[in-house]
Amino acid sequence: MDSATSDRPAHRTPLGRSADNGLKIVVVGGFGVGKTTMVRSVSDIRPLNTEEVMTRAGEQVDDVSAIQGKTSTTVAFDFGRITLNERTVLYLFGAPGQERFWFLWDRLFTGTLGAVVLVDTRRLADSWYAIDRLEHHGTPFIVARNDFGGPQHSAEQVRDALDLSEDVPMIDCDARSRPSSKNVLITLVEHLHALSTAQESAQ
């Protein structure tokens, strides 16, 4: 049961008629780290949830008969939506960080702008696997430390514990706060912009 999401919104808020470009950003992190809270803080709509059916090999199931069998796994995820301008809509996905869900991420990450790795400094090891997968996949990301009031660690201690390279931005946040969560997204997109500009000028 997750009271932070609603699968039956009282009112659907439609997009404008000219909306024609959907973008994706993924928020990943361990159990209870604040993923849904962050999505809700910045979303124009109440977070919705749904599910995808995947095979163990990470393939999207395109065969309904597989849903009936034991060859597939169902993964639930939640998402929110931010209208950026008349044409562009950003969808924010909260993805479970546990190892057994890697096949969902590979699917979700295809075509995403980038990812936010949300960490609780009391449980840093929960995010190791997510960071591994992102690096492996070549998906750009930033790390956001969600403050649960645990012991204070220096940025350097956290970087060490995560074996984070110097060029990956790391910031503090409070997922319950809209300005703070908005700042996390801006930090990610600024990072993506810097990477993209560097790549373009290298060409």
Partner: peptide, 17 residues
Amino acid sequence: AAHLPDSNLLEQVLVGL
């Protein structure tokens, strides 16, 4: 993974955010 979105699109996203 291999190809970052172009900087113009990202600038639009930043303005929106």
